[in-house]
Amino acid sequence: MRHRRIAAEEAFATPEQLAAYRLLGESGWRDPDVQFWKGAVAGAFDDIVARLLDVGEGRVAAMDRHGIDVQILSLTSPGVQLFAPARASELARASNDLLAAAIARHPTRFAGLAAVAPHDPAGAVREMERAIGSLGLKGILINSHTDGRYLDEAQFLPVLEAAEAMAVPVYLHPRSLPEAAAAGYGAHHLNGGIWGYAAETGLHAVRLIMAGVFARLPGLRIVLGHLGEGLPWWLYRLDYMYKLQSRRIPRGANLLPSDYVRQNFWITTSGMNDADAVRFCIAKLGVERVLWAVDYPYQEAGEAVSFLNAMDLPAAHKRAIFGANAERLFGIAALEQAA
């Protein structure tokens, strides 16, 4: 049975963004994200860069080859968060305009998550109101820390309050660890997708829980890629240690960590084409919390389609993971409405 396939974590880039990255690389800044993009824009990953920049016919043709109906597009990591606040907000607005134009050209094939500059909280809220209210984007994506600062800190509260008030999800996407935390990951090239991304983004999610963010904002919805950046595997341990530590450490949360994960988080399969791991996450969180994604163009679409096609799951579960859960979470019109 053919289910509608909505890929929930699919990256794009803009020429202005990559030109700005090139200037950062030429400045000598040693940030790992800067150094990656310095090599990328110099030609080290020409095939990936070309696919990131294509938000038109070439991307749609690639989707058609693998039977992907919709991509939810977001500005590739680390987005605008490397730049000073005013410049970051300027780049976010420009990228959201480009994204909205691409969606307007292919309204049944693309949806989008807005870029914002979290270190410009007032500007980020204004851009959320514009991008979601006027441009029709479906949420926001934040690339984990900003200059080593995390969303549980008070300065970022207006952004999270706005997301809750607008009833849109925040996709918490990985980036390289901040410099102060990265030393132990560097010797064996671990500060990236192989390990560091999940460690850093999982830490960010746990910080939100332990700081009491969801006790204050119970309607806030967070999406984590890569099958939850490790959190589903740690629910028992988080709860056990939370109860043990709570005897001596004041906590802002009033439920167990696992309660918040099950109430306020959704996860996607991006970059995790592992059937056993997906079954585990379904058992821990419920099938309604699991969404399908490719992580295009960093992962291969064909593999992402094939692995879920081959899983021995009830048809209703496949339908939910492939597309129905994304329709509900992101407010994407169901197929009969979109037709």
Results as ranks from 00 to 15, higher is better:
4 R>F: 09
9 E>R: 07
10 E>G: 09
12 F>M: 11
19 A>D: 14
21 Y>I: 01
22 R>D: 06
26 E>N: 09
31 D>P: 00
31 D>K: 02
32 P>C: 06
35 Q>V: 03
38 K>W: 05
39 G>M: 08
39 G>Y: 01
43 G>E: 05
43 G>C: 06
50 A>S: 10
51 R>F: 00
55 V>L: 03
58 G>R: 10
62 A>P: 03
63 M>I: 01
64 D>R: 11
68 I>L: 07
70 V>C: 12
74 S>K: 03
77 S>M: 14
79 G>D: 01
83 F>A: 14
83 F>R: 02
84 A>D: 14
85 P>D: 04
88 A>N: 01
91 L>E: 05
93 R>H: 13
93 R>T: 08
98 L>I: 05
100 A>T: 04
100 A>V: 05
104 A>S: 13
107 P>F: 02
108 T>Y: 10
114 A>S: 07
117 A>L: 01
123 G>W: 04
124 A>W: 00
125 V>T: 11
126 R>Q: 11
127 E>S: 09
128 M>I: 09
128 M>W: 11
129 E>A: 14
129 E>F: 01
130 R>T: 09
137 L>C: 08
141 L>D: 05
150 Y>E: 10
157 L>W: 09
162 A>V: 03
163 A>C: 12
164 E>W: 04
167 A>D: 15
168 V>F: 00
170 V>M: 09
172 L>S: 10
182 A>D: 08
183 A>I: 08
186 G>D: 09
186 G>M: 04
187 A>P: 08
190 L>D: 07
190 L>M: 15
190 L>W: 08
192 G>I: 01
192 G>E: 13
195 W>R: 13
196 G>E: 04
197 Y>P: 08
198 A>D: 15
199 A>W: 02
204 H>W: 13
204 H>P: 06
207 R>D: 09
208 L>W: 12
211 A>H: 12
214 F>N: 07
222 I>Y: 03
224 L>F: 05
229 E>N: 04
229 E>D: 11
231 L>C: 13
232 P>G: 06
233 W>G: 00
233 W>M: 15
236 Y>E: 12
238 L>R: 05
240 Y>K: 13
246 S>Y: 08
249 I>V: 11
252 G>C: 06
257 P>E: 05
263 Q>P: 00
264 N>D: 13
266 W>M: 10
266 W>C: 00
270 S>A: 15
270 S>F: 04
271 G>M: 00
272 M>V: 06
274 D>H: 07
278 V>Q: 07
278 V>T: 07
280 F>L: 02
285 L>M: 12
286 G>I: 00
286 G>V: 12
287 V>K: 10
291 L>N: 09
303 E>V: 14
312 D>A: 15
313 L>H: 12
315 A>Y: 03
315 A>G: 09
325 N>G: 14
327 E>N: 14
327 E>I: 14
329 L>C: 03
334 A>M: 01
337 Q>T: 13
